[in-house]
Nucleic acid binder design. Structure first.
Lengths: 158, 158, 158, 158
DNA sequence: TTTT
DNA sequence: TTTT
């Protein structure tokens, strides 16, 4: 039976996304994301940071490369994927990633606006969400929300 | 700034989905979904049921009509949408719905298999999720998982 | 069978929380929260804002009153609850709320620090989350994360 | 700033939970959970299963040991936690787990009822959720929903 | 190692 | 109006 495998994170990028162009022209971006919590132990405030490996494919990868930068606050939604391989000592190694299918920039507009210049984000998106005037995913000059399933043609909101 | 508006439900359908074909050929399905919790009060087990109005658009609506039936257990993911209007007494009225963009049937296969007959679900889905062999959303004879953004052509997994 | 009824929102408060002290000494805070999305229609960027009624009970209500203010960006996790009543015209009226059991302030520290002065948040929280040094929920001078289930005594992190 | 680190899974246990009693009397249960998706490739239905390491602490661990068994369908909510260590070859090794703070049994009652006998689950839970008659988490003879934050005394719903 |  |  089908199951559910969903991850929701809000955190800051530890580095700029690193992009790779795979065979077949598929793009893959990856970056570390930190989620911190604070608790109090013996009267001291303690921060505990968890690091996540985020992976983004295809059109989303290109958007990630362009708009997500080190230090930015971002909401990420995706699924867990654990890869395994045998290392040269013959040990089974595991690496768990969050394959993002949706992300949204949070924080001040000035934190994530298009440094390069123009602001004409938002392209020829077609309406898919409802009765003629709603939409599921959108990109704008403040708040950038993009999804893995979006069709490259009408998706790249820029 | 963009925000996040996400609802995750697991519950049973109170009725079969009701489908309407809107102007423009858009389909809309709607059904009530019950989520129950149990707690103990004064030594008695008490059930508290919450009812949700679920709305599904377009291709997903057709899938909902075909596969979701009264009593079935389903995972629903969507967003809150509150509509308002003035009633004939001039009062502002509100109605909150969950606009689903993804659902998955849970429970036994016998609970949700295609009563009508053939099992040849799973169509010409193209790969969109990754490096050539993963996929985000899938439909199959057990476990039906569908999404609002899917392209009707490669989406209807049947 | 038990179900799941979960709401996840990230948005801005439309007003300061309004607090009420119920019979029995229970506190209840409520406030409107806006989640916006942007989409492009006919070449124009359009914002669509959804308003949610957030309700917070008990110790969390007091924290909400103290730290959440109009305009602040907040992550809210909770459940849907629809109340109904008959209005004076005899119509059935419905009102859907999000009963929060967890919230976290997002955004700049300067956006939500204790204006009054001291920073001695984080009180006698006991460790509940793990092997002796982790915690599920925490409050701090940046990033305030609180939960409904927390015991008032060790919960009010201030 | 505080972040969000949330995982939501629905899947089947691959094994019975394994329980360990740590120093200090803290219990820890762990088990593998499978989440499957189906997609169609070259006309063939393909199943892709992801395995997750679930960890449960304290009172929840004892409940998990008692009620969660191999093959059962369960909803799990928790957070990601990656542990690292150096192996004997001096390589950095990583292991990512989902630390559950909430789970709910799904599926038929017959799938998860108390095989041993009595049904007197539901204990002296106190009301914590609201205005005097609601509750956030509950356990019952059908539908078992438990949370990490619950006080052991009123939590063990059995 | 689950489930269908 | 569901489910157990």
């Amino acid at each position: 039976m089908s199951g559910i495998n969903k991850v929701i994170l809000v955190g800051h990028l530890g580095k700029d996304p690193e992009i790779r162009h795979m065979e077949g022209g598929v793009s893959k971006a990856s970056f570390p994301l930190a989620t911190s919590e604070f608790y109090t132990k013996d009267g001291q405030r303690v921060e505990q940071t968890e690091w996540h490996n985020i992976v983004v494919w295809r059109g989303l990868a290109d958007i990630a490369e362009k708009y997500l930068h080190k230090g930015k606050l971002v909401y990420v939604e995706g699924k867990l994927r654990t890869r395994s391989w045998d290392d040269k000592e013959g040990n089974k190694r595991y690496m768990t990633e969050v394959v993002a299918d949706n992300f949204t920039m949070l924080g001040r507009r000035s934190d994530h606006e298009n440094q390069g210049g123009n602001e004409s984000y938002g392209g020829g998106n077609t309406n898919r969400g409802g009765s003629g005037n709603s939409r599921d995913a959108a990109g704008g000059s403040e708040g950038l929300n993009v999804r893995a399933d979006d069709n490259p043609e009408d998706d790249l909101p820029f």
